[in-house]
Simulated assay, not measured.
Amino acid sequence: MPHTHHRTRWARPLAAVAAIGCLGLAGCSAGPADPAGTTATVPDTRATPPPTGSTPPPASANSAEPARVTIASIGVDSALMRLGLNEDGTVQVPPAEKGMTAGWYTGAAVPGEPGPAVIIGHNDTRYGKAVFHDLAKVTKGADIAVRDAAGRTAHFTVTAKETVRKNAFPTDKVYGATDDRALRLITCSGRFDSEGHPVDNLIVYAVLR
């Protein structure tokens, strides 16, 4: 996908993220199974609400929805499902039974268009390792390829990654306005809380080449 230079800016007013109930994008299981392997855990589907009060950024006339994401350096090659919002306004995550499939949040930018595109994937589910299990191994400068439904591929370069507490999820930084053709990958990370939910999120930031 060509990187044309126009100044369309995705401006999304940001809603305040409450410290209680807005606990970051989960993208992972609720916790490990019991040692005997007899109890299936329930995926943690809590997520930080995205900015509200606006519509997705305008896509160009020749844009198509993303269909596949590939990160060759860590062995990721996944189809992309569409993710929207839950009834409570939080971002959906892929169902646990599709843990090896990542999802594109349709309320954000189309990958390769101006603004932040967001792809979410599980780290682990009750079924085992999931699509973004090794996302923490991705390094600065790594290539992320997103192919659209028309067969065109946009290549993104990893610029940074960070681990954040779910109760301090950087909503503005992830979803906020940018002139860049940006990509964010999100999964869970860190230790488990007393209810078996991972306490952190791992966010990978990338920009179009």
Rank of each mutant, 00 (worst) to 15 (best):
T4C: 06
H5C: 04
H5P: 02
R7D: 14
T8N: 11
R9K: 09
W10S: 12
A11H: 12
A19D: 13
A19P: 03
C22V: 00
L23K: 00
L23W: 04
A26T: 08
A26I: 04
G27P: 02
C28V: 08
S29I: 00
A30I: 01
G31N: 11
G31L: 10
G31W: 07
P32C: 02
P32T: 07
P32F: 12
A33V: 08
A33H: 04
P35D: 05
P35C: 04
G37R: 00
T38Q: 10
A40P: 00
T41Q: 13
T45C: 12
A47G: 14
P51N: 14
S54Y: 02
T55I: 09
P56M: 10
P58S: 11
P58E: 06
N62W: 09
A64H: 15
R68H: 15
T70N: 12
I71T: 03
I71E: 05
I74A: 05
I74M: 06
D77E: 13
A79C: 00
L80D: 12
L80M: 11
L80V: 10
M81F: 01
L83S: 03
L83H: 04
G84I: 08
L85D: 10
E87A: 15
V91L: 13
V91D: 00
Q92Y: 04
V93S: 14
P94K: 00
P94F: 03
A96F: 06
A102K: 12
G103V: 10
G103M: 05
W104H: 14
Y105G: 01
A108N: 11
A108K: 01
A109C: 03
V110D: 03
V110R: 05
G115F: 05
P116M: 01
A117S: 15
A117G: 14
I119C: 08
I119R: 02
I120P: 07
G121F: 10
R126V: 09
K129D: 11
K129L: 09
K129E: 13
A130N: 07
L135C: 04
K137H: 07
V138I: 15
V138M: 02
V138H: 04
T139M: 09
T139N: 07
K140R: 15
A145Q: 14
A145Y: 02
A145K: 14
R147E: 15
A149L: 11
T153D: 13
T153R: 10
A154S: 15
V158G: 03
T159D: 11
A160T: 00
A160H: 12
K161W: 05
K161H: 14
T163H: 01
T163G: 00
T163Y: 05
V164D: 07
K166C: 10
K166L: 09
N167K: 08
F169D: 07
T171L: 07
T171I: 04
D172G: 14
Y175T: 09
Y175C: 10
A177T: 13
A177V: 02
D179R: 12
D179M: 07
D180M: 01
R181L: 01
R184Q: 10
T187K: 05
R191M: 11
F192Q: 11
D193Q: 07
S194E: 15
E195Y: 08
H197R: 14
D200R: 01
L202K: 06
I203C: 06
A206F: 01
V207R: 13
R209S: 15
